[in-house]
Amino acid sequence: MFNYFKNSFNFSAFNSSLKANKFKPIFEELNQKYPKGSDPWGLNIRKSIKSLEKIYPFYKHYFKVRVLGKENVEDKAYMVVSNHTGQIAIDGMLISTAFVLEVFPPRILRPMAERFITSIPFIGSWAAQGGAVLGDRQNCINLLKKGQSILVFPEGVKGIAKSTKDYYKLQNFTKGFYRICAKLGVEILPVSVVGAEEFFPYVYQAKYLANIIGIPALPISANFIPLPSPVDIHIGKPIRIPQKISHDSSDAEITKEVKKIENAIEEMLKEGLKKRRPFFANQNLKDK
């Protein structure tokens, strides 16, 4: 186990990737896409690029992220819908990094953040500078209209804050994202993340205590720092909204369509779990 940790973080690679600056063309393209350097939601391209440079060594050498299905992404705005795992939103950060550094053309995804995030000192402004926005319907519509791609986790806190026994079990999706896509005719890009649950492999969710304190979740974990579990990001084929569905369609119709998205991501998860790389903390979970 110790050797695994030692090998998983290669410091020479860490430094060389920064020095080589192989992402210069990508960053130049981002600068061209956002000539003003910022937007009304608080995105700051300069700081975003700095954050990416800091995140990349962890992305590549600590979490060893693999992106599969890049060819499914075209040059247009998507509603990127993913499962949510890992107790803290590292999965969101990794997906966002993948969409800048590994997907063509590069784009800064706009993750929809929980309402309380924006009120946390330092975290709120750091997240906004990196592209995150308050999870609000109006924000989502305005960004999609401006050609920005959105990242949503329709499982919400229920998805990310699971006890070990529930790992990789998809929670019911909320429907708001689907109505927005139906309204604007935006395609849904399903994404599944495999490997993030094992960042914190042994977790108990103290839901009762969380309720008393008034916070959305209170994970009690055996480890405080996320383990270097290898992460696979699977990008599925875009899903179009059927013509018969509008944003005013009944709940029953929307639920049926959302269930299809849920099933598609569940299938991708199952396939992903079969293909995932071995890691000491996922050995007891591999049959799920």
Partner: peptide
């Protein structure tokens, strides 16, 4: 100012 400066304000 009538709209208030709140953490859950949408843009725009």
């Amino acid at each position: 100012h009538v709209y208030g400066a709140l953490h859950d304000n949408p843009v725009f």
